[in-house]
C-alpha cells in the first residue's frame, strides 16, 4: 500500500517534469533553429533542409554581413536613439503626472485621473491617428514618429500613481513644513523612494520601443530612419532585394552568396544582443502586470 503510493508519486512527478521540460524546450528550441541555420552552409541546406544543429558549420554568413554593415548599423543607431530618448522622457513625464494624481489634496485629481483613465477605455483608432501624424503634425519620416505616440500610456501612469499612493504621508508633511516645494519633494524624495516602480516602467517602455516595428511600418520610408525590428520585417518580405544589394556591395555572384544563412544571421545580429539582456529583468515585467491595479 505504502509502496504503491510512493510509486504513484514518483510516476506523477515524472510526468510533471517531462511536461515542464518539453514546454521549456518548445520555448527555446525554435530560437536555436534560427541560430543553427545562420551557421549552416548553403550546400548542407540544399541537401537536408534546415536542421536544429548546424550542418557544414561556418561563419560565412556573418562574415558577409559584417563586411556590409551599413543598414544594420544605421538601424541600431535609430533603435538606440529611440529607446534612450523615448525611455527617459516617458519615465519622467509618467512619474510627473502620476505624482499629483497620487495626492489626495490635489484639487483636480479627479479630472486628471479621468482624462488619463479614459484613454485606456476608448481610442480613435488607426486612421484618425494616422491622419494626425501625417497631415496635421507632418511627422512622417522623422524620428519623432517613432517616439511620441508611445510616450504616455495610461496603464503605466496608473501603476506609478498606485505606487506613489503607498508612500508614507509623514515624509511629505515633514518636507512641506521644512519649506520644500513640490518639485523639490518630487525629485529629491519621491523619485529616489520609488525605484522599483520607476524601473518597471522604464523596462516596459524600453522593451516596447526596442521591439516596435509598427510605427516604422506606418510612418517610415527613408532607409536612414528604419528601426531594427522594421528592418527585419522588410528583410523578411524582400530578401531578394537585400541579396541584390549585398551582392552588388561585395561584388559576389548569386551562386556564392549564402542567402538562407545570411537572412537568419541578420535576424540573430539584429535581435540577439537585447534578447540576452531582457531575461535578467523578467521579474519587473511580471510585476508590471500584478501591480497594475487601477482603482482609487
Amino acid at each position: 500500500m505504502v509502496g504503491n503510493k510512493s510509486r504513484n508519486g514518483r510516476i506523477s512527478s515524472l510526468i510533471v517534469n517531462i511536461v515542464l521540460i518539453l514546454v521549456a524546450l518548445a520555448c527555446i528550441v525554435p530560437v536555436m533553429l534560427v541560430i543553427s541555420i545562420s551557421l549552416s552552409s548553403m550546400d548542407a541546406i540544399y541537401e537536408t533542409g534546415y536542421t536544429f544543429l548546424p550542418r557544414g558549420f561556418n561563419f560565412k554568413a556573418y562574415e558577409y554581413i559584417f563586411r556590409d554593415m551599413g543598414q544594420i548599423l544605421t538601424s541600431y543607431g535609430v533603435s538606440i536613439r529611440v529607446v534612450l530618448i523615448g525611455g527617459f522622457v516617458s519615465v519622467l513625464f509618467t512619474a510627473m503626472i502620476a505624482y499629483p494624481m497620487s495626492k489626495k489634496s490635489f484639487r483636480y485629481k479627479k479630472q486628471v485621473t479621468f482624462i488619463v483613465f479614459f484613454t485606456m477605455l476608448f481610442n480613435g483608432g488607426l486612421v484618425p491617428s494616422y491622419m494626425l501624424m501625417t497631415n496635421m503634425l507632418q511627422l512622417k519620416n522623422t524620428i519623432w514618429a517613432l517616439i511620441l505616440p508611445y510616450l504616455i500610456s495610461g496603464w503605466n501612469v496608473m501603476m506609478v500613481r498606485t505606487f506613489f499612493q503607498g508612500l508614507p504621508d509623514e515624509i511629505f508633511e515633514a518636507a512641506t513644513v521644512d519649506g520644500c516645494g513640490e518639485y523639490r519633494i518630487f525629485f529629491t524624495i519621491v523619485l529616489p523612494m520609488s525605484k522599483p516602480a520607476i524601473a518597471t516602467v522604464a523596462l516596459l517602455q524600453v522593451l516596447k520601443y526596442w521591439n516596435d516595428w509598427w510605427l516604422g511600418l506606418l510612418y517610415i520610408e527613408q532607409d536612414a530612419l528604419v528601426p531594427l525590428q522594421y528592418m527585419l520585417y522588410r528583410l523578411m518580405n524582400n530578401i531578394s532585394e537585400m541579396q541584390r544589394q549585398m551582392m552588388e556591395g561585395l561584388g559576389l555572384g548569386a551562386e556564392t552568396f549564402p542567402t538562407e544563412p545570411a537572412r537568419m544571421a541578420m535576424a540573430v545580429v539584429a535581435a540577439g544582443p537585447m534578447l540576452c539582456v531582457f531575461p535578467f529583468f523578467q521579474k519587473y515585467f511580471a510585476k508590471g502586470m500584478t501591480v497594475g491595479a487601477v482603482k482609487g
Partner: peptide, 30 residues
C-alpha cells in the same frame, strides 16, 4: 500656488495625451 505647481507637473503628459489620444477621438466624426 500649490495647485498651480501640481498642475504644471501634469502638463507635459496632458499635452501628449490630448494630442495623441483625444484629437484622434475627435477624428471619429469622419
Amino acid at each position: 500656488k500649490r495647485t498651480f505647481v501640481l498642475l504644471s507637473m501634469c502638463l507635459p503628459a496632458l499635452i501628449l495625451i490630448f494630442i495623441f489620444n483625444y484629437i484622434p477621438m475627435g477624428g471619429l466624426i469622419l
